[in-house]
Nucleic acid binder design. Structure first.
Lengths: 372, 372
DNA sequence: GCCGCAGCATGGAGCGTTCCAGAATCGTTC
DNA sequence: GAACGATTCTGGAACGCTCCATGCTGCGGC
């Protein structure tokens, strides 16, 4: 039967990784002592400890995460499910998550949804199969009922705005309404009155921005009121806007739902020979890396993406600790709001601010201004 | 002693997941039979199989990946270490990897280096600790000696250009030289003679591009020859270039090492009142998402990023299969080059092409052209 | 001199699987 | 009816680790 085992051993990647037994033999101690030593637990003399660690070092020993988690019943893994790679938003949120994870003994596993709800689901399943103890979903595209089902197995924190509150799912979101208000107030302060809102989505975050825009417009310029284009026929709306501007009619400023739409609009305006910002001012939302690349530079609303990420991780850790019956590892920090038990949500707790395009070419109506 | 176990059980996330034993008991068979059934292996009657699967379904049983990989000695995991999230390059390469992985029974684990070699190393370690069977590194920033050390434990495929050939490490790279030649030939065909090369790096890929640029310039316009600025004092070089152009002197075209630098240059030119592309033509490298956003649109060199990703995954799988002593799963495809045994590398096998800015505003010297 | 008690160190059980040798069952064939 | 092979099913060992009960020292106090 030893020979039968042999074959299994031989089938594994060359030079089979050293185990706790190998280290034990090398250091002349029992496997239990090695286990204590590598985990830095008490109950060993300094002499043996260092002897063991030396041997481990020399053999290139690394503890097998799977074996450990098998016996401990936990993995120390948190899944990060990104709606998309390749966006500065997701990068920054992820960085925030990583920074917070580095403070704890938490390992992250990143999954990638490729902007596709179906793929997002599959990736979520995949993360669960890996044994993550919680999942941070940086996307609002997962269907609520699916989220709810998964949340019964494992804590879920969503960074973004879900269409509805989901039992057992915590959320972190930026203050969309406040951001939109900032944007509109900024344009108003520049003297604009006819301000258009261009939106590409009817999802929750977009609707919050749109609603706030409308409220401000109704309150501040009742004689003009809100004018929203999109999300449907967005292309045609842009074309119409451009022809208006070329005739010297229509809006003098546009607040777009996000930077991508702003960039697209700016491109089309420039193609049509419209002078930006003289003939049209544009303000975006997200403060993406596009802002400083575009000419004229784009004024946009900045979300505290790093903070949102860190927040999400801490919430996940707290949930795990709660599930495990222990108390939260940190003394509850400022943001904790230890109010209602699950389900709870923490939204709008992350501030937002306007980042006017610094430097040479701010988007403005015919005159320059400094920083907002 | 049973009670002592109890506490361990109770400490684990609520409602302890059902195991193979639970299913066995429910179906009235042995755990071995359950194992066979859930893995769809032969050796069971249809009757018992379906009875077992029903029971498993009812209990919501999911096989424990850690336990499985512990006994099988393999995880089915491949690590993807990204030099950075948030770039369209990394996204596309990752998509290519994922597409190829979907065809196999491979699960991907993504790590994130944040453009920092030190962090890259830590993430690599973290992936190894997770038990990945191979790592695809989408970055050229890891020090060769470190790569070499790790490659002894697990196959490594690098997407990018390492400073030197590393034993045991496979690489996938685009044809930097061919790409650079395309770019320069393109500008020459538009009538440019004084073409500057602006580079931001002295790393390998950049050097390949730079060298190819110089060769073409020497061969095609010997009376002008190559002129390279950067990587040091890039900022000053740009300022100088702009002042030259404003005086109607200096280069009429610039080939930049990448799109980021091209975008920066274009921004500064526009800030200075230079008309693009009338006064200066710019060609970038990468065909990033910037190209279609900028005005005028940016002509750039396109790398087959998806293909490169798929290639990398197939190479990794092949390596794993080789290490495991089995033959490659697929009949060797076109690109395999089954030449030298390890170490081998496969570079420059992924084609490259110029993507001229379509539509309205191509970067050109005073006249328009169609697609290249 | 013996007891008690630290402090260290250890072997064994068990985590949830897979794998394998062998047992049990069944149907054929002589 | 015995012998045999094929089919179906099973228990135990092992994977690499943690945890626990227990053993072994040596030392101070009575």
């Amino acid at each position: 039967m030893n020979t039968s085992r042999r074959t299994a051993v031989d089938r594994r990647p060359s030079g089979r990784a050293p185990t706790i037994h190998d280290v034990a033999r090398a250091a002349g101690v029992s496997k239990s002592s090695v286990s204590l030593a590598v985990r830095g637990q008490a109950g060993l003399s300094e002499a043996t400890r260092s002897r063991i660690l030396d041997a481990a070092q020399q053999l290139g020993y690394r503890s097998n995460v799977w074996a450990r988690s098998l016996v401990q019943g936990r993995t120390g893994l948190i899944g990060v499910l990104l709606g998309d790679l390749g966006s500065s938003y997701h990068r920054d949120v992820t960085n925030g998550i990583e920074d917070a994870a580095a403070e704890q003994d938490i390992r992250l596993v990143i999954g990638h949804g490729r902007r596709d709800p179906e793929r997002l689901r599959r990736e979520l399943d995949s993360l669960l199969a890996l044994g993550v103890e919680a999942v941070i979903v940086v996307s609002s595209w997962l269907p609520p009922q699916h989220l709810e089902a998964v949340a019964q197995r494992v804590p879920i924190v969503v960074v973004g705005r879900l269409p509805q509150e989901v039992p057992g799912v915590d959320t972190v979101a930026n203050q969309d309404a406040a951001g939109a208000r900032l944007a509109v107030e900024h344009l108003l302060s520049l003297g604009h009155r006819r301000i258009l809102h261009l939106t590409g989505s009817s999802r929750t975050a977009a609707m919050h921005r749109r609603r706030a825009y409308s409220e401000v417009m109704r309150a501040r310029v009742p004689e003009v009121g809100p004018q929203v284009e999109g999300p449907e026929h967005l292309d045609r709306a842009q074309a119409h806007l451009i022809s208006q501007v070329l005739r010297g009619e229509g809006p003098t400023a546009v607040f777009t739902q996000n930077d991508r739409i702003a960039a697209e609009l700016m491109g089309r305006c420039l193609d049509a020979g419209i002078r930006l910002p003289d003939q049209l001012s544009v303000v975006g939302y997200d403060s993406s890396s596009l802002c400083s690349v575009l000419r004229p530079r784009l004024t946009s609303i900045d979300q505290p993406r790093l903070t949102m990420g860190s927040l999400a991780l801490r919430m996940a850790v707290e949930r795990i600790a709660g599930k495990l019956g222990a108390r939260a590892p940190d003394p509850a920090p400022r943001w904790t709001r230890p109010r209602a038990a699950p389900p709870w949500r923490l939204a709008d707790d992350a501030g937002v601010h306007l980042r006017a395009s610094g430097g040479g070419g701010p988007v403005s109506p015919s005159h320059r201004w400094g920083r907002a």
